[in-house]
């Protein structure tokens, strides 16, 4: 059986000998307090997406850019670009939804499966070596979404 954990760590340590994964031993849990069809949903991706008019992620940072970008609720594929050089963009270029399933979620709102989508979604650039700043930014992101009345977040890696 392939041990992806060891393989990935080994590959990363060729570039960053000091690297190790961040480990937690418990899970924060927020249970849904109402049915899904009464919930507001936000998408969050680590795909490095951002508006073409927004500042790109800084790929020169040694430990990775932990900041996030806001994607407006009405965003279209043509509005976006990707600043993330560690995955192949051919799939997302062909269909935004295989990374950021905004059109699918709009269908669920229309069908009444979820009540609404957030006015803002979030995008990180997930290639991060030093995770301490990322943890801080994730709490900031959570507060940001909470302020928008978001109940549920659906997250995708790349």
């Amino acid at each position: 059986m392939i041990n992806h954990l060891l393989i990935t760590k080994s590959l990363i340590r060729r570039r960053r000998p000091d690297f190790d994964f961040t480990i937690f031993h418990n899970s924060p849990v927020t249970l849904l307090s109402k049915p899904l069809n009464k919930c507001k949903l936000a998408l969050v991706t680590t795909g490095g997406l951002h508006l073409k008019t927004d500042a790109p992620f800084d790929l020169s940072l040694k430990n990775g850019d932990c900041s996030y970008r806001i994607l407006p609720g009405e965003v279209r594929h043509d509005d976006l670009m990707v600043s993330h050089k560690w995955y192949n963009h051919k799939f997302i270029n062909a269909d935004l939804n295989c990374v950021f399933p905004i059109e699918r979620m709009r269908e669920y709102v229309k069908a009444g499966e979820i009540q609404s989508l957030s006015e803002e979604h979030l995008s990180f650039m997930g290639h991060i070596y030093d995770t301490a700043p990322l943890i801080k930014y994730s709490i900031k992101a959570g507060r940001h979404l909470k302020g928008l009345g978001v109940d549920v977040a659906f997250l995708t890696p790349t």
Binding site: T22, T30, L134, S138, K140, G142, V152, F154, P157
Partner: peptide, 16 residues
């Protein structure tokens, strides 16, 4: 890690 931060803010998360 991002899911943890968002969940701790009182939002239910699911991550792929």
């Amino acid at each position: 890690l991002i899911a943890r931060g968002i969940e701790a803010s009182g939002i239910s998360t699911v991550c792929v």
